[in-house]
Simulated scan of single mutants.
Amino acid sequence: MKDFTKSSAITSFDLDHRVKVNLFRRTAIGTNGISETKNETNDTKETIALSLIRENPAITQKEIKEKMGISLVTVKRLMAKLQKSGRIQRKGSSRSGTWQVEEPKD
């Protein structure tokens, strides 16, 4: 269940001093408390996905989809990007394995 309680103005246009147009973006807050705004940055999605994996290394992509409120295709794309960049790694089989978050080496 989503609660559409927040709106934030994105931009405002003044057309010929007769018409003013305000564009708003609705922010949906899911039951898990995570913002489900479509305009989130990839970094925000990555951070949320990484925290979900840290909480539960055996989490499935379907569970990530449900908790983040994004499509499964987006989750698959995000996970592939995180794997390619070396931030996560899959241990074990694709069915019964777990995710491992690779912490950055400073």
Rank of each mutant, 00 (worst) to 15 (best):
T41V: 02
M68D: 02
I64Q: 00
L15T: 10
S12Q: 15
L52E: 03
D106L: 14
E102R: 04
R77M: 08
R95L: 15
L15S: 06
D43V: 04
G30Q: 04
T31H: 06
G97P: 01
S96P: 01
V73T: 12
I59P: 03
I48S: 07
T98R: 13
K84F: 07
A58D: 14
I70A: 10
S12D: 02
W99P: 08
D16W: 14
L15N: 02
D3H: 12
V101L: 03
I34F: 10
L15Q: 07
E36N: 00
T41M: 07
Q61F: 01
K62G: 04
S12I: 10
I10E: 14
G97F: 03
N56Q: 07
I53S: 02
E103P: 01
Q83F: 01
I70M: 04
S93I: 05
N42Q: 14
T60N: 12
S96F: 15
T11Q: 09
I64A: 03
V19P: 08
V101N: 01
K6I: 15
T11R: 11
N42S: 14
N39M: 13
K2L: 13
K65I: 02
S35P: 00
G86Q: 12
E55I: 11
L23T: 14
P104Y: 00
R77G: 06
T37A: 15
K84G: 07
D106F: 14
P104V: 01
D106N: 09
I59W: 13
L23F: 08
K38C: 11
V19T: 12
D43M: 06
I34A: 07
I48T: 05
A58H: 08
L72Q: 07
K38V: 08
S51C: 10
L78M: 04
A49S: 04
E55Q: 03
M1T: 09
K91F: 02
S93V: 06
K91G: 04
I10R: 14
L82E: 02
A58I: 08
K45H: 09
E103Q: 12
N22Y: 07
F4E: 09
